[in-house]
Write a protein that binds this DNA or RNA. Structure first.
Length: 518
RNA sequence: GGGCCGGUAGCUCAGUCGGUAGAGCAUUUGACUUUUAAUCAAAGGGUCCAGGGUUCGAGCCCCUGCCGGCUCACCA
């Protein structure tokens, strides 16, 4: 009777194979759960899930309940490999990621996210019942085992299993073992599956954790103090970007997810916190592509009595430190280029870079000549752009992307960077750098503007008559006096793309933003 | 937003000229005590992204939509 699936009318397999019948004979009470499932109208799902539920019930009936309790292991699997010692009795656990069953023995690989480890299960060691039950395990199940370490003929570290227990039953099948999960959409939507079946993905995210920890170590070691400033802001300042909007009921005010922590960190500098940094999420209500996610992680650092040069030294030391301590190398492959982080990095003033690429006489040219050159380079120029804007457009579209090795662009025109101090020798230029690596902007740094009158003026220009956007609290903080300050912002996700050789920001963010599935 | 490409079994992918829906892995059954993409034999498994249209007949051709990838543009 259980052969008939009422829903489809199709036949289903007889769940009672010979080996299973052997189990049933020894414990007839296990018939009940099997029948409940097989006969149940609720028994839905695909063939695999159905099969695994049957296996689960048979395991439960023979003394292996499907969802166990905490398991005290001797060590994690990577530690087990590291401290391998033949003959040692150990307890180990993990998810079954490969299984090779034979008549009276089986080999299995378990993985706990740190490493894989081979298990050998033999009938004569376990006894008939426990061995038969072991053969009911499915790929993906999580088990704990106890046994002796030894090395196989093929010289692989292995546990000879004397006891085992089921810790968690996997009801859904894992992706194919050889190709893993490659469907990009499924990988992002079901990151857990991605992590289980693609070890290199796990590796990237472990590196992410290490990098963030090491950044903190590095900065803490230099006396920088990590702080947390508001994510919910009533005025979204510190950058020019569209914010996400929310409403705070208790105060009946609209609030914004922050687009940058800058204005709060500067308040702390005013308050006397000498060296501060914040490494956390920013939110920008903008497009989504290979290098942009609406929430992204940014490291902002401010140092009182410093300037752009302070930041220049800091970022070179920090990046090479990360490269050497975490990755053990100084060269990285990224987006088809080899990038060498060996310091000192090249520094070139903006105007020199332009002349280098567009000719010595570039800044003597007129607007029409510049536009003609833009056209020649297939750079689109908007109506009404002036000479500086045309120049910058050409820079943006053709020069920046060609700077593969780390390059500091300095002495930018003040129009491009409204929140920085001007250069001592030229009020038209600002004392900043933009760090370009692999043709991508990685970090800007400023000698911060600390003149409150000038700051107010620039805010007013930026707000364009919309007074409600002015952060008056910040301006009055500045009026109490902010020391000369060096500041820098580093896009952590992009840094991680570089260090891990990832081409897409989604590959370094665990749960990237996706459209809802229709 | 524009252009191009894609969505077929749990996974990875084929699918010819429009004519019975295919393979490998996985699953099930049988064999198997040193395997490791185990092996050997057999079997089962499909909302061909969705909805329309053309046609005697559509996975395939046409239209619309959804989701994704690449790319260009925009925004910063």
């Amino acid at each position: 009777m259980w052969k008939a699936d009422r829903r489809s009318g199709k036949s289903v397999r007889n769940p009672f194979s010979n080996s299973k019948l052997a189990l049933l004979r020894s414990n007839p009470s296990c018939l009940r759960p099997i029948l409940e499932i097989v006969m149940s109208e609720e028994a839905t799902g695909n063939e695999y899930r159905q099969q695994r539920i049957e296996n689960m019930n048979q395991l439960a009936a023979t003394g292996f309940p499907a969802f166990g309790k905490a398991f005290e292991r001797t060590a994690r699997l990577d530690e087990l490999h590291a401290g391998f010692e033949e003959g040692r009795q150990v307890k180990a656990c993990g998810r079954i990621v490969a299984i090779r069953k034979m008549g009276k023995m089986a080999f299995t690989h378990i993985s706990d996210g740190s490493a894989k480890f081979q298990l050998m299960v033999k009938k004569d060691l376990l006894g008939e019942e426990k061995f038969a039950a072991f053969k009911l395990l499915d790929l993906g199940d999580i088990i704990g085992v106890e046994g002796e370490l030894f090395i196989t003929k093929t010289e692989e570290n292995t546990v000879r299993v004397a006891e085992w227990t089921l810790l968690s039953k996997a009801l859904l099948p894992l992706p194919e073992k050889f190709h893993g999960l490659t469907d990009v959409e499924t990988r992002y939507r079901q990151r857990a599956l991605d992590l289980i079946s693609n070890p290199e993905v796990m590796e990237v995210f472990k590196k992410r954790t290490e990098v963030m920890r090491e950044i903190r170590n590095f900065l803490d070691g230099r006396g920088y103090c990590e702080v947390e400033t508001p994510m919910l802001q009533q005025i979204a300042g510190g950058a020019a970007a569209k914010p996400f909007k929310a409403h705070y009921n208790a105060l009946n005010v609209d609030v914004f997810m922050r687009i940058a922590p800058e204005l709060y960190l500067k308040r702390l500098i005013v308050g006397g916190m000498d060296r501060v940094y914040e490494m956390n999420r920013n939110f920008r209500n903008e497009g989504l592509d290979r290098t942009h996610n609406p929430e992204f992680t940014c490291l902002e650092i401010y140092q009182a009595y410093g300037d752009m040069r302070t930041m220049q030294e800091l970022i070179q030391s920090m990046f090479t430190h990360l490269a050497e301590t975490i990755f053990g190398k100084i060269e990285f492959e990224w987006m088809g280029n080899t990038i060498n982080l060996q310091t000192p990095w090249r520094e070139v003033p903006y105007h020199d870079l332009i002349r280098e690429n567009l000719g010595d006489g570039w800044f003597e040219k007129g607007l029409d000549e510049a536009k003609a050159k833009a056209e020649e380079l297939e750079v689109h120029i908007e109506e009404g752009m002036d000479f500086k804007q045309v120049t910058h457009e050409i820079y943006d579209k053709t020069i920046e992307g060609s700077l593969i090795q780390p390059t500091f662009i300095t002495r930018l025109p003040k129009e491009l960077v409204p929140l920085a101090n001007h250069c001592d020798d030229d009020p038209e230029l600002v004392d900043v750098f933009e760090l370009i690596i692999g043709g991508k902007e990685i970090a800007p740094a400023y000698s911060e503007l600390n003149n409150p009158i000038e700051q107010r003026k620039r805010f007013e220009e930026q707000a364009d008559g919309n007074g409600s956007k002015m952060d008056e609290d910040f301006l009055s903080a500045l009026e109490y006096g902010m020391p000369p300050t060096g500041g820098m912002g580093i896009g952590i996700d992009r840094l991680l793309m570089l260090l891990t050789g990832s081409d897409a920001i989604r590959d370094v963010i665990l749960f990237p933003q996706l459209k809802p599935r229709g």
